[in-house]
Every structure is written in C-alpha cells, then in structure tokens.
Design a binder for these strands. Structure first.
Length: 596
RNA sequence: GGUCUGGUAGCUCAGCUGGAUAGAGCAACAGCCUUCUAAGCUGUCGGUCGAGCGUUCGAAUCGCUCCCAGAUCACCA
C-alpha cells in the first residue's frame, strides 16, 4: 500500500471518528506539498467543511491531531488556511525506497493470458516516396504508444498498412520507364525509396512542363490537365495494373521491392518495427462484401445510379459514399475491408489508429460504420490524432521538394551529436566504434525526445537549425544524467561497497524524500499515460525526475560520504533513479548510454 | 457556413479529473570546475494563462458567448 493510500484511508477514518460520516477513501487524493511549505503531503480540507460544520483552520487542525495520534506514518502536521500539510515519519521513506528497489518490473503491469489485445496501426507510408518528418512523428508516436500499452498489461500487435497501389506509384513507374534508362538502386548507389521518390518528382516536373506548353498553346488549365498525355499514360498504367497486366505488375513488384528495402533500413535505424504488415493491394477489394452486407442489414442504401451510401445524419454527420456508381471502392471502403481482414487474423479488443489530424472526420465516420457493421471494437476505436509538423517556411510539399527527409534528418542529428561530443571532449578514449554508437544514441535520443515531449495534438514547427538542442528539457540531458549514475555505480562495483538499503533506518533529507516521492509516482504516470495514450506525459515526468536528481546529485557527494548507511542509501536511490529513467526512456523508444 | 483541435513568459513548451504566490528550458545578465562527468548547478530578469460572463469558499483548469489560428466537410487517398 502506498503512502498516499495510507493517508487517504487515515483521513477517511478520521472523518468518520470525528464527524461520524462515511467518506470513500478513494475520493481523497493527497497532493505533494509545495516546496515553500513544510510537509510532504497535503490534504485540502474544504470539501469536509460541510461535514465538520467548522471553519477551515479548525477542521484541518482536528484532522491533523487525529492523524498524528492514530496514524503511524504521520510524524507531525501544520495548517495553513484550508490546507493540512502532513509530514511523514522519515523512516517510512526508506521503506518506500526498498519497496521500489525490490519490485521487479516496477511500474509495469504484467501481460497475462486474459490481457486484452490492442492493435496499433501506425506509419502507413506510400510507396512513391521516402519517409519524411511527418512520418517520423507518426512512427515515434506509434512505437511509443505500443510500449506504453504493453507496460499497462495489454497484448499489443503493431501493424502497418502500406499504400502500395494507385496513381501515385504509377507516376513513379512511368517516369522510371521513360527516363530511368534501366537504373537500379545498386547502380545509382542510392536507397530504393529515395530513387523512386526522385522519379515521382521527375514525373511531376515533366507533367508541369507539359501543362505549361499546352496552356501556352491556348488551352485552359482544365483542358490541359485532361489532354496531358503523361497523365493519360499513368491512368492507363493503373488500369493495366488493376487488370493484372504481367509486365506492369512485374515492374511494380520490382520497384516496390526497392522501396521496402529502403523503408526497412529507415525503420531499423529509427528503432521501430511491426508485427504484421498489410498491403493495400491485397485489401482494397475486401470492403465491398461488408458494404453489401450493410445494405442487407439496412444500415446502408443504394442510389438509383448504383452508388452505395450510408446515412449518418442521425449522428450529426452527412451521407457518406462507400461504393462508386461503377462499383469501385473508395478509401473508406478499403478501411472497412482492412478491418475485416484484421479481425480474421486477430481477436482484437481494441484498435488504435495513429494517423494525422487531417483525417479526424474519416475516423469519426469509420467508427460509426464499423459499429453498425457489428465490429465490437468499432464504436470505441481510438484515432490517435496528431498535429502536423511544419517548417519555418510553411508546410512541406513533396512535389516541390520542400520536405525534410527522415534519413537525412537522422544523419544530421547524429553528426551534430558527434561534433558536440567531440567538442566537449566526451569521446576521448573511446574506440571509433564506441564513439559512433554513443553519437547515434544521443543524436536519435535528441530527435525522439523532441518529437515526443509535446502534446501530440499540437501542430509543431520544426526548425532544423534551432529546434533541437542538447541542453535543458531534451533527450541528451536525460541520457547524460543516466550515464553519470552508471558512472557512480561502476565506481561502487570497483570499490565493492555495500549497496544494501533494507536494514538502513536512515532518515532521508528533503531532497531525498522528494526524489523518492517522484519515483513512487512512476506507476501512476505510466497508467495515466496509457489512458491518455500520451508519450508526452512520460517524457515530462522523466524530465522532472532528472531535474530533481541533478539538484540532489550536485549537493551531496555520494562516494565520499563517510557514513556508510547514508552512502548505501544514496547509492540505492541513484540506482533506482537510473532504473526508472531507463524504463521511462524505453517507453519512448529512446536508448540510454552507459557513458557519454 | 457546420464539425473538430489548439491559443499559458520574447521563443519552445509543462501544468488542465478545480486548490496555496502559474512552472521548466531557450534567449539575456551574474556566479560555480584541485571533490563521483560543467551536455551540469545557483541566482536575476521576464505573465491582464486569447477576451468577457457564469458556477464555486477557490478557475489557467469546469460551462456559455465571442476573437484568433489550424484541420476537415469530394464518385481523391
């Protein structure tokens, strides 16, 4: 039982004893006392005034007296206005620390056979261009979310739906056939996804030129778009693809293969992975059955022209198209089909889609439709919606080449980390391999932390030159603290000092108590983050912990402390802070270095 | 126009299940390396929490109205 719970219960008992009124202990939430005041935990007594029929001070005093007399954990109390500040018996804190120290998987719930299965969809790239900054945010959020859900005792299936078909990939294929001269990633010395992206841009360049010359010949923009031979060729290619034309399919498979090899490299470097990958080329026809089923169930209807719709006006939305008059699927139909396949593959209890906020409406509709079609998780599906990443110059436009490429960005981060480390002399005495690994961990840590620490809903501006820092509330700051703790522990190991803490009846000081309290909060932070699906909560918690530890660290010499009990206590505290940092960073997908 | 989401220090952001004098970092300025890693620590400066009204003992937090910004409302994906 945590200290918070003990106090809640004690206050509930006190209210009953003093005023003969039953109060649910769960509704009494002690808060940590502000630094300016004496005490560890604070009870706000205003809610009890109606029960006590006394003024705030008198009520607080009565409760405080009762607690001091009847609760072992309470050492003393003071009252300021309606706030009852409680000081916990210092020896209790040592007990809390050893409890944390002795709890395996501290803060994480175990996954059992009865655990619910949650499927998390993220990444979902198109195969016509490499991953960019927006995908980076998506991938990091998706991966971190998965880790957080696992820590909360869910079975997690990470999934990726690859948009591998459609007009966009045909454009790249066409450009490659026309101007590629048989080039391959090997010949070009380039990652496959980048090579395909180049051809996509090339198509657009030629297409624009064609439009321009048509318009120069007196055509309107609309006419030019219709008459463009390039676009016509691309459409023909798409039709051939859909008809299963062997040659087109062959090129398609080859080029997509290049792209996947490139993606795999990027994913690996980013540290994200998937349990199951779906391809739209396999799923895009799947939704039709479900829609036809929907007509039978009466939740969808067919118009005279043959198109199929769902009437969502009862839910405050519009009518939504599901099958075109020519019988082909739209985006929504595909997502229904994908849902069907997924449910065949896994007994899904809960579904989370990590997709940008421009699709909020889409998922609102999808949720309603899946629910009507009888998917038990449809109604409660979570669209984990995140804001756009913009550049100082504005939005990224892939066709105009104003995107921040994921691979380039990682390179840049790692280079910056290497340079900064070298400047600070941190890499002295490291082998080349070690130095490279440390630079990688720090560079990626900075990037990941930067992306994850902000509220996902917010749009963020990414300034490549200024945005990522290594000081303050950053990944490297946290990693640095971890590395320093490891350094202390290495020294301990060398000197064979005792690390035992159990028998120590040491009374911690204010800073140490604050740290223990913070550590004790970790499980509830993980739980809350799971409810809100927010890595940002984990990030900011860790920052607070680290900030607090650094202040402690600076004030006390751990290794040179002469009192062996105090030294052992501080070593134990440090080790547990390190442990929590590493677990919290693990939830964010950020590695922590042994030294830096 | 309808719906959704944001608006907190010069900048980037915490805090939002209502609690004490609204917190960090960056930037600026002033200190701290013979002591376990100075990517650190300490201090100064910096705020009508978009505006107003309401609920409450108490509102950045809850409700309503308005302002600003973004997203979305296709037989595109």
């Amino acid at each position: 039982m945590s200290i918070d719970n003990i106090i809640s219960q004690a206050v509930a008992d006190a209210v009953k004893a003093l005023y003969s009124v039953e109060v649910d202990a769960a509704t009494i939430v002690p808060q940590t006392t502000k630094k300016e005041f004496e005490g560890n935990l604070t009870i706000v007594v205003f809610p009890f005034l109606k029960i006590s029929r006394k003024n705030p001070e008198a009520t607080a005093k009565e409760l405080g007296e009762y607690l001091q007399a009847n609760c072992e954990a309470v050492k003393c109390y003071n009252v300021i206005k309606g706030f009852l500040n409680i000081t916990i018996e210092p020896s209790f804190w040592a007990g809390v620390l050893s409890h944390i120290n002795d709890t395996p998987n501290y803060g994480f719930k175990p996954v059992t056979a009865e655990s619910e299965l949650v499927m998390i969809e993220y990444s979902s790239p198109n195969t016509n261009k490499p991953l960019h900054l927006g995908h980076v945010r998506n991938n990091l959020l998706g991966f971190s979310l998965s880790e957080i859900m696992k820590a909360n005792g869910y079975k997690v299936v990470k999934t990726n739906i690859v948009n591998d078909r459609g007009i966009h990939i045909c454009k790249s294929m066409l450009a490659w056939e026309k101007w590629g001269d048989g080039i391959t990633p090997e010949k070009a010395g380039k990652k496959g996804d980048h090579l395909i992206g180049d051809f996509y841009v090339l198509f657009d360049k030629h297409y624009k030129a064609e439009l321009k010359s048509l318009m120069a010949a007196g055509k309107s923009e609309e006419e030019a778009e219709k008459e463009s031979t390039l676009m016509q060729e691309a459409r023909e290619m798409l039709q051939k693809w859909e008809a299963g034309d062997a040659k087109v399919r062959g090129v398609w498979e080859m080029m997509n293969g290049w792209v996947y090899a490139g993606f795999d490299e990027t994913y690996k470097r980013l540290g994200v992975d998937f349990d199951k990958i779906y391809y739209e080329s396999n799923t895009y026809l799947e939704g039709k059955d479900k829609v036809l089923e929907g007509i039978e169930k009466g939740v969808m209807y067919r118009k005279e022209d043959g198109s199929v719709w769902a009437d969502l006006t009862n839910d405050g939305l519009d009518h939504k198209l599901l099958l075109r008059s020519d019988g082909t699927s739209v985006y929504m139909t595909q997502d229904i089909g994908t849902a069907k396949l997924r449910y065949q593959d896994y007994p899904i209890d809960k579904m989370i889609y990590v997709v940008g906020n421009e699709q909020n409406y889409h998922f609102q509709v999808l949720s309603l439709l899946l629910d009507r079609l009888g998917f038990k998780w449809g109604k409660d599906l979570v669209h984990f919606s995140y804001g756009m990443v913009e550049l100082p110059e504005g939005k990224m436009k892939s066709r105009e080449g104003t995107v921040v490429d994921a691979d380039d960005l990682m390179d840049e981060m790692i280079n910056t980390a290497r340079e900064t480390s070298a400047e600070l002399g941190k890499l002295d005495g490291c082998s080349g391999e070690e130095a490279e690994n440390i630079s990688r961990i720090i560079g990626l840590g900075a990037l990941k932390y930067f992306m994850l620490k902000v509220d996902p809903r917010k749009n963020m501006t990414f300034n490549p030159k200024e945005s990522i820092d290594f000081n303050g509330n950053t990944g490297p700051f946290i990693q640095y603290t971890y590395a320093r703790i490891q350094s202390v522990l290495r020294k301990v190991a060398e000197s064979a000092m005792s690390q035992a803490v159990d028998a120590v009846a040491f009374e911690p000081n204010e800073k140490e108590i604050a740290l223990i309290q913070r550590l004790a909060d970790f499980p509830s932070v993980v739980e809350e983050a799971g409810k809100a699906y927010s890595p940002a909560q984990i990030a900011n918690y860790t920052y607070d912990l680290v900030k607090e530890y650094n202040q402690f660290y600076h004030d006390y010499s751990i290794m040179k402390e002469e009192n062996a009990d105090i030294r052992a206590f501080r070593i134990c505290l440090s080790r547990n802070v390190g442990e929590v940092i590493s677990r919290a960073m693990g939830l964010l997908g950020i590695e922590v270095p042994e030294r830096m």
